[in-house]
Design a binder for these strands. Structure first.
Lengths: 344, 344
DNA sequence: CCACTTGTTGGTAACGTTACCAATCCCAAG
DNA sequence: CTTGGGATTGGTAACGTTACCAACAAGTGG
């Protein structure tokens, strides 16, 4: 039986003495083996296997100029399946570059974001990917971040110039709204994030522009812009549909709002409640949208792709900060899936 | 303008000399300030702020016995929204304990899992949480892991005794299948993971037991046990429903298979294809299951809770390995949501 | 056979931090 | 006014690793 304590991780020294060489030779062997005799390499590797030795990456990265191999990723809401996909995209690219990701959830909390960023820097991350909360930018300034490159995803931070990956929020929302207008709707409700959230504002703008282009006024009574989760979205949808003059269609600015609205619509159908069964346009796809009892048009984009793109931007910045030039913004296109199109 | 290089992270020494004290006093101040004069503390903190100093956590954890504050989490499939929830649960509890999580995706690949675990250990994680792939357990043995506590989630590894958090797979599948039998179905198809996947096997067992208890034989023609993603599940469902003698109901052993089956059923409804519109029982909930065109009974559980539970088990082990005793298994209950029950 | 290159190995120091001990200071009690 | 004690401060060493240089061995060409 092995003892419960004392089974500390072995060190280079122990490997070296077991193999009968110096620590340097072990280090060299593990670094690729240049200028180490093959038979010596074999003895070293045998000792490594026997002791179950792993290099201490923290000690390695202590030496100046050595990268830690870590990427800090802070996300606003992991409970949203979109951000799971996003994290996956980042993880994939990071793994391709031999990096690991340190993951944190901010829950849209400003203080938590600051805390996470400090911790990430304290752990010597080689780069940061952030879906920022709407707060201020002081803790993200270059002078606070030192050398650490930063990429913002999904949202911009006012007054901060950094590499950014965005979606074509305005264009997508505009096209989605237009599709409702083309179908003859004129009274179109809006469900979305509060306007201090970057995407919430942009997506509202696309909706608003489409409406005014057709000479329609936006009726504030059927605009609800303060829902961050599914439950709140259901409540907002309910209030809207209970109006004497309810909307015949709803533009939903994100996944959480769409699910909430559809849950409310489903409830009304089951309960035989009166009123319209509004058509929906949803920014963000969701699984089985094609099976909904009301037509759902989807403004689709690939969160995983967004994650991959953010990571690519980060690595290109890390590889060569000079060549990458000034802050870049990548705006990823969105596609529109109409409900009558089936082959998804 | 700040120079592009040279803006290295400041160190204790620089803070100390700016504050006119020794590095030790800085360290003590940052550690809580016991036995440091208040006015000195203030000078130190001012210097910290001025320089934008962050403690180097890697250097800190280099000292023996010092925890790194990192938890390694390896997941099989981040693209499955369930694992996003799981990761969130782990992250929450880790954050409550002041720890960060290092996240990796194995994609059900054995080699990748080994690689991730090595890397995690090399980064001196204080603990490991793993949704294991079905491969062997050599790299997870205590003698390989050294002191690092391990918690398995969702699945067990054959021949490895470790703390484990499971769902009541067998019981849930049994009850779900019984609900179909009670509704009068006798020809019930099965969609699931390959049998080498722990949950795949357990969920099949629950299904099989329910069938044989009623004196029904399982017809291998309507049992498909090799689908790991939505696309494969659609194909399998299609083959099953195209039979001359198709099932009138389907038991789906996980989220991915359920989505695939429903996608195929939706296609048949739209295309007006002949054959049954099978009822579904789904292990794993999914959003808007109540709006599906066929009745969907859901065997529901909370992945976030699973993650929280796994993390709790890990921290209790870390706090006091002796008191925690031998390997423990926590089996979380599941609940069943019937399609006619609306108030979700 | 010698100078010279090439290949292989080891010793030393340094990365940033904090535990430990020693040194100093101030104040109060005698 | 001294002495003891607690509070405060600093110096040294060590954590595990690898870059750098020095040392040495073996081979090569003159």
């Amino acid at each position: 039986m092995s003892t419960s304590r004392g089974a500390r991780q072995p060190t280079v020294k122990e490997v070296a003495s077991l193999a009968g060489v110096s620590p340097m030779t072990v280090s060299r062997t593990l670094a690729g083996g240049t200028n180490v005799r093959p038979d010596v390499q074999e003895r070293v590797m045998a000792a490594v296997r026997e002791l179950g030795y792993y290099r201490n990456e923290n000690a390695r990265s202590l030496r100046p100029g050595q990268p830690s191999g870590l990427i800090g990723v802070a996300i606003t809401n992991l409970a949203n399946p979109y951000y799971g996909q996003f994290a996956l995209g980042v993880e994939e690219v990071a793994a391709e570059h031999g990096r690991r990701i340190l993951l944190g959830n901010t829950g849209e909390d400003d203080a938590r974001e600051r805390q996470l960023v400090s911790d990430f820097i304290g752990r010597q991350v080689d780069g940061l990917i952030l879906v920022p909360t709407s707060g201020d930018a002081a803790h993200l300034r270059p002078e606070r971040l030192g050398e650490v490159p930063l990429v913002l995803a999904s949202r911009r931070v006012p007054g901060l110039d950094a590499d950014t990956v965005l979606l074509d929020d305005v264009g997508g929302s505009h096209r989605g709204t237009v599709s409702l207008l083309d179908a003859g709707h004129t009274r179109i409700g809006f469900l979305g994030n509060r306007s201090s959230v970057f995407t919430g504002e942009r997506r509202y703008r696309g909706y608003e522009r489409a409406m005014t282009e057709r000479g329609l006024d936006v009726d504030p009574v059927i605009v609800a812009r303060d829902q961050q989760d599914v439950a709140a979205a259901s409540v907002a949808a309910r209030a809207m549909l209970d109006l004497a003059d309810p909307p015949t269609a709803i533009f939903s600015a994100n996944n959480r709002n769409t699910i909430g609205a559809l849950r409310e619509i489903g409830r009304r159908i089951r309960d035989g409640a009166p009123g319209p069964r509004p058509a929906i346009v949803s920014f963000d796809d969701f699984e089985l949208s094609e099976l909904m009892p009301v037509p759902v048009t989807v403004i689709d984009h690939d969160a995983r792709h967004l994650g991959r793109e953010a990571a690519s931007l980060l690595f290109s910045r890390m590889d060569d900060a000079e060549a990458a030039g000034g802050p870049r913004t990548v705006e990823l296109p969105v596609s529109i899936e109409y409900p009558w199109k089936t082959g998804r």
